[in-house]
């Protein structure tokens, strides 16, 4: 049976890519003296797998990594020991045996911050409301499988719910999006907004994963 870690990736660690993060975990387990399962085969290597790869530059407080704890530490000791062996910005919160299948992870709650350095235009909020309330919102998405180099995806059915909040220089979109098969990258929402309302295009957008959810909207662990 596999074990899981719940961890966050914020601050400077946001810029560590998915592959680099896997390598960082493999080394950190060794540094922390935690023995983990290895793949079998000619070139054995430590087995770690991250549930939903996170784009470079996104922060998260709910990342899930699967591995197999063999020894060197108890599950209770793992979070503190491993955090100490990590680069700045990665904090391990929990280590526990996996009880549910990863495919039960259905939704991701993102906090998407649209920043306006000169102050937020009043009409940006109704504009976003309008956009996300459409019947359908088709965007082009890069694809390696398609001959054209992109496929079309309708965003609306992949948005389970959203909430908007305004401050003087930010517009915060709190959205629950489909996680996998297919999932929705929140970058597409930003792109759709800038395409539909170029006059309200923000100066900068940050993306943060707040929670991963199951089909009923409960936290997935």
């Amino acid at each position: 049976m596999a074990d899981r870690l719940l961890f966050s990736k914020t601050g400077r660690a946001k810029y560590i890519s998915h592959l680099d993060l896997m390598r960082t975990f493999q080394r950190a387990f060794t540094r922390a003296g935690i023995e983990i399962k290895h793949t079998q085969g000619f070139h054995k290597h430590p087995f770690v797998s991250i549930a939903l790869p996170l784009s470079v530059g996104y922060s998260s407080q709910c990342e899930i990594l699967e591995f197999g704890l063999v020894g060197g530490a108890t599950a209770e000791e793992v979070p503190a020991r491993l955090t100490a062996a990590m680069p700045e910005g990665i904090i391990i919160h929990q280590c526990y045996p996996a009880e549910r299948k990863l495919k039960e992870l259905a939704f991701v709650n993102y906090i998407i911050n649209f920043e306006y350095s000169e102050g937020r235009p009043q009409a940006s909020e109704p504009a976003m409301q309008e956009l996300l309330s459409r019947e359908s919102l088709v965007m082009q998405k890069k694809s390696n499988k398609s001959k054209k180099g992109y496929t079309e995806v309708d965003l609306i059915p992949l948005i389970r719910g959203f909430n908007l909040e305004c401050q003087s220089d930010t517009l915060t979109l709190d959205a629950v999006l489909c996680a996998q098969n297919p999932g929705l990258n929140p970058e597409l929402i930003r792109a759709a907004f800038c395409q539909a309302y170029p006059e309200y295009a923000p100066d900068f957008v940050t993306f943060h994963r707040r929670e991963v959810l199951d089909i009923d909207g409960n936290p997935f662990r």
């Binding site: 560590i16 950190a28 700045e88």
Partner: peptide, 14 residues
């Protein structure tokens, strides 16, 4: 977010 391999420019390594 606009540059290649941004982890080179952040520091914060172990």
């Amino acid at each position: 977010p606009k540059v290649q391999k941004p982890a080179r420019y952040t520091g914060g390594e172990y």
